[in-house]
Amino acid sequence: MNRLSVTGLRVRYGPIEAVRGLDLEVGPGEIVALLGANGAGKTSTLSAIAGLVPPSGGRILLDGEDVTGLPAEALARRGVGLVPEGRRVFASLTVAENLLLGGAVHAPPPERRARLRRMEDRFPVLGERRDQKAGLLSGGEQQMLAIARVLMAAPRLLLMDEPSLGLAPQMVERVFDLIAQLRSEGLTILLVEQNVPMSLDIANHGVVLANGRVSLRGTARDLLASDAVRGAYLAG
């Protein structure tokens, strides 16, 4: 069974329909890259799956359970984690407070502390800066914090919206390495990215959106080789 199965998804903001009948599947333990130009409907799709906007049509199944239209807090409790575009760490809270909040409803206090220590081991910079305000971190460090914060919830489906956006090149590498590593630990990831070659490099499948619909889909390897993707994104 698929971890995530989306059929006929529609998202509407007033008169504008951002997503118009999207089908999408993510199997357990795989990375699916959701690609497409600005305004193609990628963020709207993630927002609907995370429950931040109610879909105007279609169905969303999580491990076969219909979760269409549930609010964000209910989906989070069911194991859907979102790393939002632009990181959105809580700038006025400390690094440790950001992380503890990420696990607040998912683990009782002792387990939450244990997870916090694991995150600080995994991301040493967050351990060093645990008592600093998150707003003082660099962009790359904030991205690590945003990812670690959502990992505190031990999600079964991880949605990531442009995690490499605005980062320095070596930080971009680190983020993609981390995403690949998370998959090898068994996490299921739906990845929205502008960096098409690096995304398809680590993804199992790719889905290309245009105007709120799927224009192309396939294995990451086929997409990397396809003329359409090469023409649109890899030409240079």
């Binding site: 995370a50 931040l52 989070a76 809580f90």
Partner: peptide, 23 residues
């Protein structure tokens, strides 16, 4: 934890909901 959530909500309510905390 609820106090933390309140301070966080003052900054970005949507992300607090993403943490599973009921608005």
């Amino acid at each position: 934890p609820l106090g933390l959530a309140m301070r966080a909500a003052a900054e970005d309510f949507a992300v607090v909901r993403l943490m599973g905390i009921k608005a």
